[in-house]
Design a protein around this nucleic acid. Structure first.
Lengths: 303, 303
DNA sequence: TATTAACTTGTACACTCAGTACAATTTTTT
DNA sequence: AAAAAATTGTACTGAGTGTACAAGTTAATA
């Protein structure tokens, strides 16, 4: 990516953290990063897209460093887990990202919302996988519930600690306290065999990080097959058929599907309203978007 | 309050719930409720003020009905507590208020933020007082922590239940599950004597609902005394002194301090920058604002 | 080095929104 | 009936996002 673009991202991130997203105008960004409006809209199609870029890079940076803390450590050591959680929180707090994240969480923009939701699920997935290492298979049926509750306990404890001791929250203390509580809850739910969400339900939603994973191709094939069937009832369909075939083949043949081509094909398809009738096209677009999201965030993690 | 104004509030509430606060324009509100712009700004000084009115009435309505559920029931019966929590959640969910609340929670407006924070603390206070009735004095030193964690567990459980079974979350089941978990946590913290926030720290922040309460007058007196001392080092202070004296007397003498007079006095004081130097004036303004907030929400509860 | 291509700038513009001002009209009170 | 209060409608300011595009600058290339 362009050096200059990177610079704009950095400056804008600072502004968003300092003043908030809404409260930062594009004019502010232009002045602070010393570019012109024309250039800005060369780099980003909107203020929202810039925000997405910032959030994506921040998240993947955080995840990368968090995972690095695990190497050479016993995954079943609770101290390592505490360190990881603490580290992530401190990174967020010091950079003031937490507030920005919270602001973004309630955005009206559908894309952004979807992305943040996925990210939330990703967090849960990570906590869950670590819990599995910490608490063992016996606890497995309950660990999604526990991951969710851990997140809740932690968040709320931090929030109220911030409200009371405005400055200098002892993050470490809060994390340790919260971990102790969740240890007890794990015991509790194992004993009482009390389950709220079944792992299957959640796993359906949680993004699967395996590149080239079978289920993606299956889903894609199924979706395109269905769309084709729908199309058969219309006329003037050769172009659409060709585009759909192309998309499927591009994902089958190539290790690195060319996103710009796929996007262009999608855009062409989008101009045909017939596809929208059953929401088929929306599903397709989302599936592909998710795919590229995975690939991108994987790529960021392995420099 | 005016019938027509009430009608506008009702219509706007519907719009905010349906489309979100940001996404609803004043023009929308004017059209939907059939008034002119002039009238709108006769009723409310800003869109924000309208929002405050909506939120205030929604909250006090919710609190009122929630407290009504308790009469005639044993406060130590956990089933009553479950019913109360369930009831509040259903009220929020059915009316779609929850999303609106979340959007407002991260506003940039300082006033609104402060108000929402106070409301959060109020929630904690209520849960805490109910926990005290449920779990007894032995648990007392830990019940603020537990109230906070209960809120966290409940929120996160509901959120992820909504994400997974989009429609028809079984609120009752989630509440019961969460209550079971917190029961266990209470046992846990009593046993391990593990405290995160001391009740004293929190109680300093939590608004005290007793009208005519001693501590308010003490605080007011202390603050005004301090400001006067500060002022003594300046010149041209007679007017400010008089205003300060007036404020204190108005609260001492009258059962119903005249808010408009106090506000006007505050505004006059605000125009003198000297008071801002030590943040004294800000403190004073906040204290008085809180006072009127208490009075108002008490008044709403007792029809 | 000269030409071309890509990038960048600055500015004018279209559009949306919150909030103000105020004269004209309607409704309510006295 | 007159006065007061409430309401309307409209035009305006100012701030914001995003578009269009001609003119200028920088980098690549032949």
């Amino acid at each position: 990516m362009n050096d200059r673009k990177q610079h704009v991202i950095k400056m804008a991130k600072q502004l968003f953290i300092d003043k908030g997203y809404q409260a930062t105008s594009i004019q502010d960004i232009l002045e602070y990063s010393g570019i012109s409006k024309g250039t800005f809209y060369n780099y980003f199609t909107s203020k929202n897209e810039l925000l997405m870029a910032i959030i994506k890079s921040s998240i993947s940076e955080r995840e990368k460093s968090r995972d690095d803390l695990l190497v050479g450590q016993a995954p079943s050591d609770i101290e390592t887990f505490i360190k990881q959680v603490e580290f992530q929180l401190k990174l967020n707090r010091n950079t003031g990202l937490l507030a920005l994240f919270e602001e973004v969480m309630v955005t009206n923009d559908a894309d952004l919302k979807h992305y943040m939701e996925r990210n939330q699920l990703n967090n849960i997935r990570w906590i869950h996988s670590r819990f599995l290492e910490l608490f063992g298979d016996k606890a497995q049926p309950y660990l999604y519930d526990c991951a969710i509750m851990f997140l809740g306990i932690l968040r709320e404890n931090i929030k109220f600690n911030q409200i009371t001791n405005q400055t200098n929250v002892n993050i470490s203390r809060v994390v340790r306290y919260s971990v102790k509580r969740i240890e007890n809850i794990v015991k509790d739910v194992i004993e009482s065999e009390d389950q709220l969400l079944s792992p299957l339900q959640l796993e359906k939603l949680i993004p699967n990080m395996n590149k080239g994973n079978e289920s993606f191709h299956k889903q894609l094939h199924h979706l395109i097959f269905t769309i084709k069937n729908e199309l058969n009832q219309g006329n003037n369909i050769t172009k659409q058929m060709d585009l759909l075939d192309f998309i499927e083949e591009e994902f089958l043949d190539s290790k690195k599907p060319r996103q710009f081509l796929i996007q262009s094909a999608l855009d062409s398809l989008k101009s045909d309203e017939q596809l929208e009738i059953n929401g088929m096209f929306l599903k397709l677009e989302r599936l592909l978007k998710d795919y590229f999201f995975e690939v991108e965030s994987e790529a960021m993690k392995t420099p």
